[in-house]
Design a binder for these strands. Structure first.
Lengths: 165, 165
DNA sequence: CGAGAATGCTTGGACGTCCAACTATCGGAC
DNA sequence: GTCCGATAGTTGGACGTCCAAGCATTCTCG
């Protein structure tokens, strides 16, 4: 994988400083690092999910439903929890419904609302997928526990500062 | 923006621990946090670039060329530096070329290779875009300098552990 | 020197994301 | 009680990413 003899982010930082943007250099490095880390992680996650024919979005959908009390939630609440556009929810639910992992159910009192309900097959698939993810990704981060804790702390402050949750 | 009364990541962690996956909980939280942080950052970046009609991929392409000695690089080297698929480079160069920010030039000795060369207009656009990014994103991260340093340190170790660079 | 492997780029298709526009339903205010 | 704004979900289009396949060129090695 390593095609380069140097760290591209260190290199970018050097360039930033050379151009008189010392103020912005650490932030630039942080943004670039997060983007790159996300690319690496998503590649690993998608690989762990491939045997189950799931994508990360669809996995998140199924896991959220599996953890909910009734196994069903309004699409709008799903969107709020996963922080994605309503159209993306429609898409994810469509695909899961085609595979029988989820089914659309009308809301009992509000006819505008549609619920997504996880099926027993959906529960099976998401259980196996979680097992894989835990083994191949979440417990194999490649950095120490202190680093993971520090990361979680910083990113929690970051998200809070930007009005997440 | 804040639609929720709780942190979804804390909630997910709680669920993980309840299901006996304590081992994987910190890694799960870290992965989810990185994904979410990247979403937040990309939204901010894209907004800062919108006035210049650029996307982040195209900005990265232009900045890389602007910093290169000759203002031109083989498409394959661009792909290696930005860590994206060749097809994505083709796409980005196509769009920049249509706007006159970049032009394709044949490699002097290797006829397989195509160079992307930044134009003077491309240099103007990327300079203004960088100014915007520095002001609106890179120097407005919402967390302290120590947090940014810690983040950069952890993510550098993470990237190194996964064979980046 | 010549055939097969490797490299460089492009194309077409699948997927996910967002936005804007639209339909349907609900709820509050006068 | 009715109308108008807010809310819920879907659709179609634009964009970016990846993969697989294909074509051209260059390199390697017998």
């Amino acid at each position: 994988m390593a095609k380069l003899a140097f760290d591209p982010i260190d290199e970018a930082r050097r360039q930033w400083e050379e151009h008189g943007w010392e103020e912005a250099a650490p932030g630039m490095a942080a943004v670039t690092s997060i983007v790159r880390a996300q690319q690496i992680l998503m590649a690993r996650v998608e690989e762990a999910l491939r045997p189950h024919d799931l994508t990360f979005s669809r996995y998140e959908l199924l896991q959220l439903l599996a953890f909910s009390k009734a196994g069903a939630l309004p699409l709008s609440r799903i969107g709020a929890r996963l922080q994605v556009h309503p159209a993306s929810i429609t898409n994810a639910v469509d695909r899961c419904e085609k595979r029988g992992l989820v089914q659309r159910v009308p809301h009992p009192t509000d006819r505008r609302t549609t619920l997504a309900e996880i099926t027993s097959q959906g529960r099976e698939v998401v259980a196996k997928a979680t097992e894989n993810l835990n083994r191949e990704v979440f417990t194999a981060m490649g950095i120490g526990n202190e680093d993971i804790s520090a990361l979680n702390g910083v990113l929690k402050r970051f998200r809070e500062a930007h009005g997440d949750y």
